[in-house]
């Protein structure tokens, strides 16, 4: 277990180096100059030169990269070209908001997704199964930014029950969370259905039935427990899609989180912001995968973590 953790951390550091190096060179080597975006294309050459010196854009790429990494080592991420605020401070301020949104979406998606998927598998090929599968395909096909706008139109503008946009308490959180949870829920329904059907065909279920176990404990203990692992994997993997969805949902609902921050950074070519968000995003995805591995270890004794598997 210890070796596994050490190995994972080493891999994470390597991954971060790789990702920062790639994004860094990509953002620097390609057309589009942040300085023009900062001061406008019609400024005098002297001002442009001065700002270029200020942000260090006059040095070579390698020296800039080394400068950035040593800044990271000091626990800093530099300042935004536009607001001149510390990127790390902004991320620390906005990250809890995105986390709240993702947690809210998960609280809706996980229980309903697993429940509907389970029902769908138990009632295979019956009306209710057809209905649930159909709804889940629809859920995967509706764009998040449109379903969000429709929810906003209905609940905020027509019924005036919830505030249409902004960052704040639970009433602000509800609509974006529902919006974000829809595609995740649809995926979970499909995965749960397939896994439960797989498990139901296994010989030990027949054995359990033959022993005369009640249908209820068969469902709860034998099927659910064995179907849990793929489901947890998907819940973990879906976290990346929450980050995807967060970009759109946060843009629509004016939610002040990382997704919108990244988006604005990218559009304004605010490199310190882009780099900071990419690093945080990678960290989150890797950490979640790590957590999923650990949870495996505890819920399924067949999975042993030696550091060599995977």
């Amino acid at each position: 277990m210890k070796i596994y953790v050490i190995k994972k951390i080493a891999l994470l550091i390597l991954l971060l180096f790789g990702i920062t190096l790639i994004t860094f060179t990509l953002t620097k080597a390609l057309p589009g100059d942040p300085v023009y975006n900062m001061v406008g294309e019609r400024s005098s050459p002297e001002i442009i030169e001065k700002i270029r010196k200020e942000i260090g854009a006059d040095k070579g790429i390698m020296r800039q990269y080394i400068g950035y990494v040593s800044l990271l080592a000091k626990g800093e991420m530099g300042r935004s070209y536009h607001t001149n605020r510390k990127v790390l401070d902004d991320i620390i301020m906005k990250f809890p908001n995105t986390l709240k949104l993702a947690a809210g979406a998960m609280l809706i998606a996980v229980p309903f997704g697993v429940l509907f998927g389970f029902i769908s598998a138990l009632k295979k090929n019956m009306m209710i199964d057809r209905f649930i599968t159909g709804m889940s395909i629809a859920g995967l096909s509706i764009p998040v930014f449109w379903s969000g706008l429709m929810l906003m139109l209905f609940f905020s503008l027509k019924l005036k029950l919830l505030p249409p946009s902004g960052t704040g308490d639970i009433s602000y959180l509800l609509l974006p969370s529902i919006t974000l949870s829809l595609p995740a829920m649809a995926t979970l329904v499909r995965v749960t259905r397939v896994t439960v059907l797989d498990v139901m065909n296994m010989p030990f279920i027949k054995t359990a039935r033959a022993k005369g176990i009640s249908e209820r404990s068969l469902n709860m203990i034998h099927i659910m427990k064995n179907a849990l692992i793929p489901i947890i994997t998907v819940i973990g993997l879906e976290f990346g899609s929450y980050l995807n969805g967060a970009v759109l949902t946060e843009t629509i609902f004016g939610w002040d989180g990382i997704g919108r921050f990244t988006m604005e950074g990218i559009i304004k070519r605010d490199y310190p912001v882009i780099m900071g968000c990419i690093i945080v995003g990678t960290l989150v995805v890797v950490l979640i995968n790590f957590l999923v591995d650990i949870i495996y270890h505890y819920i399924d004794p067949r999975v042993r973590i030696h550091g060599t598997d995977r």
Partner: peptide
């Protein structure tokens, strides 16, 4: 594949 697809596409 480990990176959120939309962010990568936007990037």
């Amino acid at each position: 594949l480990s990176f959120p697809a939309l962010l990568l596409a936007v990037g």
